[in-house]
Amino acid sequence: MTLRQTREDARPEIHARPGRFEADAVLGVVAREWILYGQSWRATTFAAVVEPTLYLLCFGFGMGALIGTLAGYSYIDFLGTGIVAVSVMFQSMMPAVINTFIKRRFLHTYEGILATPIDVRELVTGEALWLALRSGVYGCVPLLVAIGFGLRPGPGMLLVPFIAFLAGFAFALFGIWISAVITSVRSMDYVFSGLFTPLFLVAGTFFPLTELPDWVQSAAMVNPLYHAVELIRGVVFGGLAPVTALGHVAVLLAFIVLMWFLAGFQMRRRVVSSGGLPPAPPPSHAATRRRWAPSAARSSRARPPRSR
């Protein structure tokens, strides 16, 4: 069998109009991540289990012994549900910032992917979708750990994976956008100290927002982690009014839409050169061209060097 004989059969089926968003392309990116996960699942699972366990051990027992109850919940219950949302943020936003930056900047991974029938928006969506799926699954781990620490299981917990998926998608897109904004590894210091820490602390995870100044409480309303925490706590303990729940979901969805556009736009600016400076010019590029120009001009008037 030759290449030519079967080439027509093996050719990818692409029926969409040019520029149209295709689910198949997104799934291709997700499949790629799934294969990579086959190698990394042990480390990922280790982090997903150990981190919330340590938080619950240290804060739950340490602080819990001092605090007792908070906002009507035992502190370990309050913290356990908060840790689920924090874990989702760490599982999605951290790799979205770090891994995406490394893949784009150093591994040339996206150069390879974008040479296949996949566009930037599909690439970004696929990367975020994978992290969201992973968050949906691993978001349940701290919940199970919290149950081990005394959180009472309830039917509302079945909704947690879906909330974790939604929040994970939002954070992953947010992280991908940031990864496309920053230009160096050093910039990540600003991201982690200036963005991660306030997001993480001002979300009602470790203590209720009501203890904070009014302006901080207002700022927390645009923190997707706050809405994820409220939703998770609401479905685990019950008592969340449907309208309030829809409000939290709506904020998360709006954040997803905004970040999807921003991440796609910024990533495209980084991986598709449409002017300005070339992505990685050889150091001697300009000098080489200067040396070349006269010869090229001479030869463009081309005729054989001698005609006798």
């Binding site: 093996a10 990818p12 692409i14 198949d24 291709g28 499949a31």
Partner: peptide, 12 residues
């Protein structure tokens, strides 16, 4: 990985 990205039909 690239067979997915190139959308090579599953059976092939």
């Amino acid at each position: 990985m690239f067979s997915f990205l190139y959308r090579v039909p599953r059976r092939q």
